[in-house]
Design a binder for these strands. Structure first.
Lengths: 339, 339
DNA sequence: CTGAAAGCGCTTACAG
DNA sequence: CTGAAAGCGCTTACAG
């Protein structure tokens, strides 16, 4: 019923080996033959059966995006999908397809990865940071399966990963504040155990120190990552004899609390207190005033991960462990150079 | 190198046909044989090669989720991913995988669908409303390819689709308002040409009328879908001699403008003006006050679409055109029964 | 530069 | 209840 390589071979008057070689861009076929085969393909509207190709080649041209998918992930963590879109973009350009696999409903840790590896349904694995754990790490390392992890794993290993440099983003925040003329800057972050928050804080403090400004402990506020807690921590800070001139908020949710605290004390942004935060978030656009943001282009992180995967497939020995995407400053109304 | 069906057959002392039958749950195999085969599979850690299975069966156990993916879709339209998660959940339960395909970078309309259909890389197509058009419709109908479209297509056809009943959601809004005792209720919607907004408005007005309350034209505000425009339309409405007692906002963005307009006139919510909107949105949680919402569980819509696809695969003749997921009221602080 | 032939690892009529 | 054999539609050494 559907057109096969044999039909094309007959139509073109060549063997199916030759058709196959044309399809796979072998350089040993004469231009005239290539021409004939293409004409036959056009005429018959032939498309190779991808199941047969996969089977014969022993490869799928498919990559799995492994992640932890809960019912409301789309709202709580849109970044995960933005990354996925970036990955998809690059793979698609390279004629790879992307299959979504969810680790959240596994019967045992590593179940899905085992399946992917042993069933041969995919040539490589891109693993979102939310899904990685030791079981999975061991499975892919033992099998030598091509993989890229998005986000630096929390444990040492020979895993391949790409990540954004959160400490660098913290430095960008410091540089921006100093450039505006703010030298007395506070930092409101998450719990001290939060990796990203700690990195950003570290980078921020180092960036300030490099430029000659030491941030004392009193200017650092750690929260339970709720808006409410950010509000109270900020309120406390603002009642100190000398309040800070500017505040760096580690994320948009904290920023909401910080802004409210500033407004409730009748202080104006940025004239009394300047504010900066990290990451464009779903509700960034409706925060009043529009915040200055140190943004990480996570779509680009996905694009990078996709490229790395393509490189791995060509050169499986490659050990990739790198910080890729650079932060970028999105200027809002919440910071302004001092006169 | 890797374990094949022959290895299992040897280990179990049966033919590979028999192993295959055990794998495919044929009922004609004796319990003793099944036992032996399972033991061999366990011992050898055998997993069937999915490429070979696909090829031999002529089917992939894979479904494509076709959608329009732009760089910032994850932020602008998280619903699309929530639906996708629902689809994935159901398919995964039924041992189907989900492949993501993007229509936004096609060289011509229908390119991706043609590829999917003719290459046989997938057994069915779930199409997000953002990706459907006449070209695609014709391709899948001509090929008789199993498909489910999420969202009622804007043109008549024999396509299979599932959708949520937006008019019904409008009725829910009316019923809730009446139940609270609000009878003079305004509706702020998008442009008149917006399908979802028009459906919600229609259902709302019908719901009010059914309960004996006619909504006059002066109580309907159409906007260009911006927060700002919602603000001005609402402000105008509130300066009328008799302002409405409650307002139904067709979406969260409009609600932001409406709330601001109400607050700027020193009116309190819900004591002076009650407010209700549709859909849980990324920033719903930070709107002050928390709004009462008529929500459509779009994850469930995805789940339904997945189930329908499974049914279609079993019975390709099935014509599915149905409204599935029911709306649900999420009570917030912006409406309250009158004393 | 081209083709005949083996083979990829399963499934499934068919025969027994 | 079980197995031998053909076949799914390609790719790829190999020979010429």
């Amino acid at each position: 019923m559907s057109v096969t390589i044999n039909d094309v071979a007959n139509e073109a008057g060549v063997s199916k080996s030759t058709v196959s070689k044309v399809l796979n861009h072998w350089t040993t076929i004469s231009p005239a033959t290539v021409e004939k085969v293409h004409a036959a393909i056009e005429k018959l509207h032939y498309t190779p059966n991808s199941r047969a190709v996969s089977f014969a080649k022993g490869a799928t041209s498919n990559i799995v995006y492994l992640t932890n998918l809960e019912k409301d992930t789309a709202y709580r963590n849109p970044h995960m999908f933005d990354i996925m879109c970036g990955v998809h973009h690059t793979l698609s350009e390279n004629n790879y397809s992307l299959m979504l696999v969810n680790t959240s409903e596994e019967r045992y840790p590593g179940e899905k990865v085992s399946e992917v590896i042993t069933s041969g349904s995919s040539d490589g694995l891109i693993i979102h940071g939310s899904a990685i754990n030791k079981e999975i790490a061991n499975l892919i390392l033992d099998a030598g399966f091509p993989h890229i992890i998005i986000g630096h794993p929390s444990f040492e290993s020979r895993l391949c990963w790409v990540d954004t440099n959160h400490a660098l983003a913290g430095e960008y925040a410091a540089a921006h504040m100093i450039a505006c003329g703010y030298t007395d800057v506070a930092f409101i972050g998450e719990r001290k155990t939060d990796y990203i928050s700690a990195q950003r804080q570290k980078g921020f403090m180092a960036g300030m120190l490099d430029r000659g400004f030491h941030i004392p402990a009193a200017r650092i506020g750690n929260t339970d990552s709720s808006c409410q807690h950010a509000y109270s921590v900020t309120s406390d800070m603002l009642t100190q004899p000398v309040p800070p001139r500017a505040i760096v908020c580690e994320n948009n949710t904290l920023a909401l609390g910080v802004i409210q605290a500033v407004k409730d004390r009748q202080l104006s942004i940025p004239d009394d207190i300047a504010i900066l935060t990290f990451d464009v978030y779903p509700y960034s656009s409706i925060i009043d005033p529009q915040l200055t943001i140190v943004d990480i282009n996570v779509y680009d992180t996905g694009v990078q991960a996709g490229s790395m995967m393509i490189r791995k497939l060509q050169n499986p020995e490659l050990l990739i462990q790198s910080y890729t995407t650079l932060p970028v400053i999105i200027q809002g109304e919440s910071t302004r150079p001092l006169p």
